[in-house]
Design a protein around this nucleic acid. Structure first.
Length: 437
RNA sequence: GCGAGUAUGGUGAAGGGGUUAACACGGCGGAUUGUGGUUCCGUUAUGCUAGGGUUCGAAUCCCUAUACUCGCCCCA
């Protein structure tokens, strides 16, 4: 049997309904925020990610899906969303003719060749946002407010917003040195991974799961201690604006983010629910003032975030949040036999064109099974079509809730269902619908 | 890349060397030849991830492979 590729999943049934619901919710939310929908290619030139995400991160050094196309071009399935948006911003010269800042949102699949585990897939969907062309700390706060408001709308409770600041380049370098200085005497005591991180990415030592309960971790220098005056002021402003939007947060010095391009504000929202699994970061993001330059664009500050769809759905499941999904069918048609199918299809098609959710049995099942099926599909009405109905054009329509049965003229069917399902016509007096004739 | 666990119908699973692979759910049919979600009856895996080995005999023990799950690294 051919199986799906490792780390991927099929969407169908309930899960599909949930995803479609969330997608609509995101669309509406982004409309409220006045963000612009972006869709960039699912693959890009490999170099883009090396320049954008950074050569030192594992994401680019060993987790990308690379391929050479027939024209010998090196391409990579995108491992994250920001690089593509920034490339598009530069390539389409949005810094010039658009009203800056550009506020972009996107939703789509990303690919990383990793070992799958709970909350981690090789193909995973991210919703994200990028604001390009403003240095204002209010933009940082706005970006943070997006997932927070989304979770609020959905009713998620067990979430924790962690924020931190890496400061500008000067502050960040200063901190990096301070950290190395601090951990140097303890180098022999650190775990193997941390010793590797010491050279490669010392900031990550802080959230090491093996070592972080050691005494000397408590007094390790914090990013905030190394911020210069300007960076500190920036961070204070972000916090001020968050407070203005009633957003609860904690300043967590161990939030450093993995990608190279971050500066100033960084944040993560985690699901602080017992037993959620090791991958409990629901979303993360931050400011990246140097990224556009790194990809050969004009100096343009940016801030953004991305959230993992799969983890969001897991969180909803954990908190037992039911999404308001309309799971009903307006009408189920039960033809008594094959000979009634032709006639039934005509009716079915008319109902669908009138905007009803309607379905039919194709398998010539007996009446009993058809009622069972109608129940399974949560159908509000069942229409039985047999010889008599076909002959007289008077249909047997049963209300599945009240069990009341009606004889309805074929010509009145749409009106009848509309009356019973939508409470009738809500148009004005001039209209020519059945009710107003 | 490293480590641990698991693998039996459509689903949840029992069986830990002895021949009909339990039980439950679901599906289909019937009791009622045009009225359902209850009840009752019937039916639903010639087969236990794949390949090899041990044995008179393997779903059961051993080996290999594969897949899945969870964790590490890294990250959403």
């Amino acid at each position: 049997m051919i199986q799906r590729p490792k780390g991927t999943y099929d969407v169908y049934g309930e899960y599909g309904k949930k995803i479609l619901y969330l997608q609509r919710l995101l669309e509406n939310l982004m409309e409220a925020y006045n963000y612009e929908y972006f869709r960039t290619p699912i693959f890009e030139a490999t170099e883009l990610f090396h320049r954008g995400v950074g050569d030192t991160t594992d994401i680019v050094t060993k987790e990308t899906y690379d391929f050479t196309d027939r024209g010998n071009r090196e391409n990579t399935l995108r491992p994250e969303g920001t690089a593509g948006i920034v490339r598009s911003f530069i390539e389409n010269k949005m810094y010039g003719n658009h009203s800056v800042p550009v506020k972009a949102w996107y939703f789509g699949p990303n690919f990383r060749y990793e070992r799958p585990q709970s909350g981690r897939f090789r193909e995973f969907y991210q919703f994200g946002v990028e604001v390009l062309g403003t240095q204002s700390p209010a933009a940082d706060a706005e970006v943070i407010s997006i997932p927070v408001n989304l979770y609020k709308i959905l009713g998620l409770k067990g979430i924790k917003v962690n924020i931190n600041s890496l400061g500008d380049t000067e502050s960040r370098n200063k901190y990096r040195e301070a950290l190395k200085e601090y951990f140097k005497p303890h180098l022999d005591d650190l775990c193997e991974d941390c010793r590797a991180r010491f050279e490669k990415n010392p900031l990550r030592i802080l959230d090491c799961k093996v070592d972080n309960n050691k005494d000397y971790f408590k007094n390790a220098p914090k990013t905030i201690d190394c911020l210069n005056e300007e960076s500190l002021k920036y961070f204070e402003d972000v916090k001020k604006y968050l407070a203005a939007m009633n957003i609860d947060y904690v300043v967590n010095p161990s939030v450093v983010r993995g990608l190279d391009y971050y500066s100033h504000t960084v944040f993560e929202v985690e699901a602080s629910v017992e037993g959620f699994g090791a991958q409990n970061v629901l979303c993360g993001g931050g400011r990246y003032d140097k990224l556009v330059e790194m990809i050969d664009g004009p100096a343009t500050p940016g801030v953004g975030f991305a959230l993992g769809l799969e983890r969001l759905l897991t969180a909803l499941e954990y908190e037992k949040i039911e999404l308001p999904i309309n799971d009903t069918l307006d009408c189920y048609i039960a033809p008594m036999s094959d000979v009634n199918l032709t006639y039934s299809l005509t009716i079915l098609n008319a109902l669908r064109l009138s905007g009803f959710r309607a379905d039919i049995d194709y398998n010539s099942r007996n009446l009993k099974s058809n009622f069972k099926q109608a129940d399974r599909l949560n159908s509000l009405f069942v229409i039985i079509i047999g010889e008599d109905e076909e002959k007289t054009n008077v249909l047997t329509v049963k209300n599945n809730k009240t069990k009341e049965e009606y004889k309805v003229e074929l010509n009145d069917l749409v009106f009848f269902l509309d009356e019973n399902l939508n409470g009738g016509c809500d148009c004005d007096d001039d209209c020519h619908c059945h009710e107003h004739e």
